[in-house]
Design a protein around this nucleic acid. Structure first.
Lengths: 383, 383
DNA sequence: CTGAAAGCGCTTACAG
DNA sequence: CTGAAAGCGCTTACAG
């Protein structure tokens, strides 16, 4: 590792001049700067020394699946939308993001604070699952500046940003019930996080309230992947009495499910209504466009970054927490159930009647975004 | 900004002990360490000082659209697959990635080397477009360790990793021609990079070779987004003589196009054959599954990271360059053209004949990956 | 515009 | 296990 003294010697200048050249001090002659940089870069490469950087924050997954992209590839859409938002949110404060790998780099016995300080970050944005959320609590207890993305905490010292999709999940399932559906399935990631559990809660609440109860046979868990979604549709539609509607609590499962339905000849929404969730624009990447409970992952990331930079600046003292609204959007993947349940739809006059009913039911809401029912419209809730 | 001396004073220990506690030196008593960390973290938060970190490399987009995620959201799939690969590739060398924002942070007049050194990174992975590739050349000329991802250079001092999809683009278009297509459209991103230009080259080459020529009316450019893909299909299918096949040189355009076709009642592949490209698993996220020229973005990212870490270690002297093979995969979105061209397909016996033909044509290749035609099979080309 | 020198932040062999 | 002190890497007011 070349030091500033080595470079100075080789370039025939003082260490002060090397320092100035590297820091873009305008007082240095272009010729001198070039001479210095030639040595820094050139001749077989001199490794630039580690520099003291105070503008880095970390982005880290905690828990066993700690490498950011270990999961199915399309899940990267969610993470990259979050990171997109994070980068925007850091524009003002001019901070930079370092992707940390906790499992690889954190020494055993080392506290999280020590680890983060050692990695040279002033704060962290955390991603987690239900299984490992206690780690976020530990980090908060240590006092290291951290904002958890998409997980909710009761204890008052954990900073987080989340989007509560319970109310809109209730609304989505009630919308299906209103269309006439009775057998409504629910699907979620086998490794749940707060979002998936919210949606499951909403599903259960709406089903109970309508007196339909929760049939455990209609609740399926698969790894969030296209093939997971396909498996779910296959398992459901193979039953003697398949559901007439399904609420996918995960966007990748939903896409995989919709395409498997096409493959099996199950028509959407004529034979099966599908409600999905969407963090970005996935609902428009399938045909028919998907009715979905939506959250804005870019905004989540942005708010998380803003929250953390405020914690670091000291603008916000102690703890930062914010809940963004989700929204329920009716598109084309939902309609009334088939008149003869079980997948095979009646043809002839029955079919025409069904089509009319469907058009009537869907028309007034199609393409409209309805805000969640928390009573404050689109305004984020801050506490 | 609290210094190590401030913390030492507040904790009632020497600066040496603070240093040891922060560096997880096992020699420090747990009690002492806790005392120190309590001050580091606690009481109104003391900002951890910037630390000298020598394990960071940068990931940067150069050029005007320099913020990584300024483009359409689903493009994040490509970037996140690349980053996934980068993180895997850095596992061994234990380096970390910092997301750099060149446009925001690089001072005017500052050289790229100075900028990178100032940001505390030892090397960079670069993303670019055709318009800004000269910047990668500049960085290479300065001598700063850099590997360009997915762009190809003639000059011998630029390190890069790319995937050449020209040969497989030729193959894809020849496959369409072999099925009987004559009017074959081509669509690409309005902001081209090396990959898009390769595919365009391949398209032109195959069309010329077959004596079909290139009709500029059948070459469309749109911003890579779902709606861009929809626009392309709309423009093409509205014509008096629409094409019977299209090769999308971008994965997001392809998905948008396929769904717009469904919406217009254009059947795939009966009325229109679609060949797409795929960096990950997008070809399976639509129905019917998409015949596509594929490249492995995760592997691209991984090889880039391995290349850079070798440059930093000095294992590879000077320059690193590698070209990965693409592969052409036939799935369900391609078949023979409709017997009566123009979208409206004949029904009755004609239709049945067409279906038979299609089954025959597609069956032998369906689901098979065929390696590119560079003569060395799946082996990467290294020079 | 450059250098010598003071000084900051941190680490580490050495002494206790 | 901890501290005093030497020392490294870097920056910066000051002198020329």
């Amino acid at each position: 590792m070349a030091s500033i003294r080595d470079i100075a010697k080789r370039a025939g200048v003082s260490i002060a001049t090397v320092s100035r050249a590297l820091n873009n001090d305008p007082v240095v002659t272009p010729r001198t700067r070039e001479k210095v940089l030639a040595v820094v870069n050139g001749e077989g490469y001199v490794a630039p020394m580690g520099r003291r950087v105070t503008t880095n924050i970390g982005y880290a997954h905690v828990g066993r699946q700690a490498n950011i992209y270990d999961s199915a590839l399309l899940n990267g859409v969610y993470d990259s939308a979050l990171v997109a938002g994070v980068l925007r949110g850091l524009d003002e404060s001019r901070l930079n993001v370092v992707m940390l790998n906790v499992n690889r780099d954190k020494a055993t016995g080392e506290t999280y604070t020590q680890f983060f300080v050692r990695m040279g970050v002033r704060g962290v944005l955390l991603r987690t699952t239900a299984q490992s959320r206690h780690i976020c609590q530990t980090i908060a207890d240590e006092g290291f500046p951290a904002v958890v993305i998409s997980e909710r905490f009761d204890s008052p010292n954990v900073s987080f940003i989340d989007c509560d999709s319970r109310a809109d999940s209730v609304r989505a399932v009630e919308y299906l019930i209103g269309l006439g559906h009775r057998r409504i399935a629910f699907a979620m990631n086998a490794v749940p996080d707060c979002d998936h559990l919210d949606r499951f809660e909403g599903y259960k609440q709406a089903m109970e309230k309508a007196g339909l109860g929760v049939d455990e046979e209609l609740v399926l868990r698969q790894r969030a992947s296209l093939s997971g979604g396909a498996t779910i549709i296959e398992m459901l539609m193979r039953r003697s009495e398949p559901p007439t509607a399904i609420y996918f609590g995960d966007q990748v499962l939903a896409v995989g499910g919709v395409n498997k339905a096409h493959r099996l000849g199950v028509r959407i929404p004529e034979d099966l209504s599908v409600v999905g969730v969407d963090d970005s624009e996935m609902r428009f990447s399938v045909h028919p466009t998907m009715t979905a409970v939506c959250q804005d992952a870019v905004q989540l990331g942005m708010e998380a970054a803003l929250g953390l930079s405020r914690l670091l600046k000291g603008t916000v003292k102690g703890c930062f927490r914010k809940t963004l609204p989700s929204y329920f959007e009716v598109n084309e993947s939902t309609g009334p159930p088939p008149l003869r349940p079980g997948g095979a739809v009646a043809i002839g006059t029955d079919r025409a009647a069904s089509d009319d009913l469907r058009a009537e039911a869907a028309a007034p809401m199609r393409g409209q975004a309805t805000s969640n029912g928390s009573g404050n419209g689109q305004e984020p809730v801050e506490s």
